[in-house]
């Protein structure tokens, strides 16, 4: 039953480019980017209970590293994206190593600071980044085709989700959940809680770097909006509305919110406000999100 469902979703995902026009195909590609972002953020927030506000910033690290390597060094985007992923991971390891042992509040504060600082640096170093104007960078393919990009994003997203699923089902995933359930009991059962949290944060940050690198080479124009707090909020809202701590939640939340935001595009300036209010209501009254609500209804029947 479950397998059949997954196969169905997979089939639909493959057929998508043959049904959607260029505009909606673009929206589909962007939603895949958000699926990667929200799922990997869920890895730390939903599975180990730590709130990072630097997820968009790490996507920015990925996008700018790969973009600038391609533009100034002629490095192939494939290599550049790997470099961006690694750099995001290393920065995550460094930041996390400094503050995770001090507790969750410190991680949130430090990542918020990192996010602001990265935005300031990118905005100010205009000779390299062209500031808020944005930097034009080469794409992945020599011939531009949205269908190609769609399949590239789909393949990476699927690989990404399979990898995450494996991680969560491994001993490491077990340790993640033990730390989330009860930190003290986990540590007196032999779990190195600081290392577990650091591992979750580092891998999640690297994943954001990967998603950001791909995203940049798709848009071919990277701006300080990628590592902005507004972007961070969108990712957080997708995970919260979809359902944190469940595997499907952030995936559903990302796709739903990205498509929804295309419909409410006309209300431009109310966009973030509206999502904010929805996310606030969900976080306050249904902390396990749409997936949690669905399960509740299902059980009642």
């Amino acid at each position: 039953m479950k397998r059949a469902g997954l196969a169905g979703v997979f089939l639909i995902a493959i057929l998508v480019p043959f049904f959607l026009n260029q505009y909606w195909l673009h929206v589909a590609i962007i939603s895949l980017f958000y699926v990667m972002m929200a799922s990997s953020w869920n890895l730390i927030a939903g599975y180990t209970g730590q709130v990072s506000f630097a997820h968009a910033a790490f996507a920015g690290v990925g996008a700018y590293t790969s973009g600038m390597l391609a533009l100034y060094g002629g490095v192939h985007p494939a290599l550049g994206i790997i470099a961006g992923t690694l750099l995001a991971g290393v920065l995550g390891l460094g930041l996390g190593g400094l503050c995770i042992r001090m507790g969750g509040i410190y991680l949130s504060l430090t990542t918020l600071g990192f996010s602001e600082i990265l935005r300031i640096i990118i905005t100010n170093e205009e000779q390299w980044t062209r500031g808020t104007m944005g930097l034009q960078i080469p794409g992945v393919f020599s011939v531009y085709s949205k269908t190609h990009y769609y399949f590239l994003f789909l393949a990476v997203t699927l690989a990404f989700l399979v990898l995450m699923r494996r991680l969560l089902n491994s001993d490491t995933g077990l340790a993640f959940r033990a730390v989330l359930n009860d930190e003290l009991a986990a540590s007196t059962s032999g779990i190195d809680t600081v290392r577990v949290r650091l591992m979750a944060f580092t891998s999640s940050s690297a994943m954001a770097g990967l998603a950001g690198g791909l995203y940049g080479h798709y848009l071919m124009l990277i701006t300080p909006d990628i590592p902005s707090l507004g972007q961070m909020f969108l990712v957080l809202a997708m995970a919260v509305i979809g359902g944190m701590g469940s595997f499907a939640g952030p995936i559903i939340g990302a796709i739903a919110l990205e498509f929804l935001s295309e419909y409410i595009r006309i209300y431009g300036e109310y966009h973030l406000l509206l999502f904010g209010l929805v996310a606030l209501v969900i976080a306050r009254f249904a902390p396990s999100g749409m997936v949690g609500l669905w399960e509740k209804i299902w059980r009642r029947r």
Binding site: A45, G49, Q50, V51, F53, G104, I105, S108, L229, G230, F233, L236, A237, V240, E269, Y270, L272, L273, G276, L277, A279, L280, A283, R284, P287
Partner: peptide, 22 residues
């Protein structure tokens, strides 16, 4: 639940910031 208080005040900051802009 420390995590939820962080998430809620962050969402609140986005709401208030956008409300202030409007």
């Amino acid at each position: 639940d420390e995590m939820y208080s962080l998430i809620i005040t962050f969402i609140l900051s986005i709401i208030l910031q956008n409300a202030a802009l409007l």
